[in-house]
Amino acid sequence: MAGGTQPPGPDDAETFVRALYEDAAGPLFGYVLRLTGDRARAEEVVQETLVRAWRRAEHLDATSDTLRAWLFTTARHLVTDLWRRDAARPSTVADERALAAAPAADELDRAVERWTVADALARLTPEHRAVLVETYYEGRSVAQAAQRLGVPPGTVKSRTYYALRALRLVLEEMGVAQ
């Protein structure tokens, strides 16, 4: 399309863009794909570049070598705009591996529970804390806990009972238990 005085009609602009697409869309897509690294974004940029060419069809010379340069420059500007837009927004996680590596809400809840229980245990007497650690966290039987703590099995049982009551009171004071 030589830069004539009359703007192209709808058929002329459509013919222009079709020819442009057949001639330049492949190399333009490859160029934009290398810039973005994302097929969907590359397709989006190529589409927008061709729309802009269609809008400016009366000003662009289809026979000129500068047309391809205009297309690639326009595509580069669109990619730069995408980069700037992305930099201005908080990043989102789109990678499935990154999402899988992120701790789940259940894991976070368990971590908070562990910290809360550890804080509550720290507020107990050393004897109560020791018996709960032996029986609940270490998974030892009453006899094994008695042997490790150097006390009779009956003492382990009664300390466990009172330690659980004390732990419940501490958790209530912390606003965790009711």
Rank of each mutant, 00 (worst) to 15 (best):
T92L: 14
P153H: 08
E107L: 04
L82T: 11
F16P: 08
W54L: 10
L82S: 07
A146Q: 00
L99H: 15
A19T: 12
A69D: 13
A94S: 14
D119S: 13
Q144L: 07
P152Y: 07
T160R: 15
R97Q: 12
V17A: 07
T92F: 06
R168C: 12
A122R: 05
A177V: 04
V133R: 15
A101L: 13
E134N: 02
V131C: 01
T15W: 12
R89D: 01
H128A: 06
V142Q: 01
G3Y: 10
A166Q: 13
D23F: 12
V79I: 01
V17E: 00
A101T: 15
V117N: 12
L171H: 00
E134D: 09
P153T: 08
R89C: 05
E138I: 04
A42P: 14
L121R: 10
T74S: 00
A118T: 11
L167G: 01
E173C: 13
G30L: 02
W70M: 09
H128V: 02
Q178K: 15
A42Y: 09
D119A: 15
S141A: 02
V17C: 02
A101M: 14
R110I: 06
V176A: 02
R84I: 00
R52D: 06
T125S: 13
E127F: 12
R55L: 08
A105K: 15
L99F: 15
Q144K: 08
V112W: 12
R123A: 11
G175E: 12
W83N: 12
T116S: 13
L169D: 05
F16N: 07
R85Q: 00
P126N: 05
L149M: 04
R76Y: 08
R140E: 12
R84V: 03
A111K: 00
T116N: 01
Y162H: 13
T155G: 01
G150I: 04
A105S: 14
T49E: 10
E138G: 13
G9H: 01
V79A: 01
V45S: 06
F29L: 06
V131T: 02
V151Q: 09
L71V: 01
L82V: 06
L67K: 04
S141T: 03
A53H: 00
P8Q: 11
T63N: 14
P10N: 01
R129P: 03
E173P: 15
L20F: 08
E134W: 06
E134R: 07
Y31L: 13
V131L: 02
Q6H: 13
G154Q: 12
A130K: 03
L132I: 01
A102D: 05
Q6D: 15
T36A: 07
A57R: 02
T36C: 14
P8E: 09
L171C: 00
V32C: 02
R39G: 11
D12V: 12
A94G: 15
A146D: 05
M174C: 05
L67Y: 07
P153L: 11
V133F: 04
D61R: 04
Q144W: 01
Y136R: 07
V142D: 04
G150D: 08
T66L: 03
R55N: 09
A42Q: 11
D109S: 08
L35Q: 07
Y136I: 10
E43D: 06
A177P: 06
D106V: 10
L167S: 01
L121I: 02
R159D: 02
L108R: 06
M1P: 09
M174K: 03
Y137C: 13
P152W: 09
A88L: 05
E113T: 13
A145V: 02
Y21I: 03
L33I: 14
E22R: 12
V156G: 03
